[in-house]
Design a protein around this nucleic acid. Structure first.
Lengths: 164, 164
DNA sequence: GATGAAAATATAACGCGTTATATAACCTGG
DNA sequence: CCAGGTTATATAACGCGTTATATTTTCATC
């Protein structure tokens, strides 16, 4: 087994490493969602959650709320609209603004998520992060090891078993 | 200023958040590299560093060393070969394997990097991470705040000034 | 020593972020 | 009241990761 260079390089590769761990978490999360029949990409949840939490938002407000760029939101919102979870209507008064709201299906999905899906994901992630301590780099090491040893989706499964 | 939803959602959005911070770090790092006239993408450094550190590697070994998938390495290696920093030659004995080595320019770039570039990047990142403490989520909050307040490239600039 | 499985790499298509730029609606000063 | 700048969104092109699959070479077995 060859050395993990990104980990070995430490501060020098912090960006690559954070992206790598983030992708791992997203991919594990996706598996939890698939098992619970959630018809979304993991990355689309924040967008829906933002509208749910803050009320109907413009594209620009969403971009600010999510910390991503406007074209990213425009595209993601297009996909979610196509899937039927949000709708856009032009703002009365300023026709440039398209205000995005949840549809009934979108709201239903959020309701179900708040009830069943989000708690499962959150518990799995919290479980993984709970034991971490020490410097930032040390915690990244531990987090990667923990995800490797028991991925989020396995933790979610075991939590589910324990609860039923 | 609207609420930062990804931060507010905490464990639930950890994947999105790690990716977001990673992209921020990469983008700041890129600016440091541009100022120092490094003709690379920040994400290409780990690949060169791996070959430098471990010697000529096959595509598969590189993928393992970097923790990314083989097609990702194939493409990145193609770009670095095109740019003249690495070469591939078929393994004597097993013609399936293409072993990647640094060219003279690649080695020169690495030498310069070890001397001047990597220390600058590493110092800026270490500077940013040094004060972090507490739980993982707490450290992520602090890291984002620190990057926001003084980006890596500004830290690198100031360090340079201090050294000269 | 041919044949079929396994291994290494390549290619294609996509996800999701980015930057740069185009378009359309709004606002403001002369 | 319109000319020009600003603002909101859309579009295009790219970066860099992924999965799925094709291709080539090797290996093992009969």
């Amino acid at each position: 087994m060859t050395e993990d260079i990104v980990r070995a390089l430490g501060y020098l590769c912090l960006g690559s490493r954070l992206k790598r761990i983030g992708e791992q978490v997203q991919s594990d999360t996706q598996r939890i969602m698939e098992r619970l029949d959630v018809p979304l990409q993991a990355g689309q949840y924040p967008l829906l959650a933002a509208i749910d939490r803050l009320g109907p938002l413009s594209i620009g407000e969403l971009a600010a709320a999510l910390g991503i760029t406007q074209p990213g939101v425009t595209r993601a919102a297009g996909l979610l609209a196509e899937a039927g979870y949000i709708t856009a209507r032009k703002e009365k008064g300023d026709q440039r603004i398209r205000r995005l709201s949840l549809t009934q299906e979108g709201q239903a999905l959020i309701d179900r998520s708040r009830q069943d899906i989000w708690p499962a994901i959150e518990a799995a992630v919290r479980d993984t992060c709970d034991g971490l301590d020490g410097s930032f780099i040390a915690q990244l090491d531990q987090l990667e090891d923990a995800l490797q040893e028991k991925p989020l989706h396995r933790r979610a499964l075991e939590n589910e078993g324990r609860r039923s």
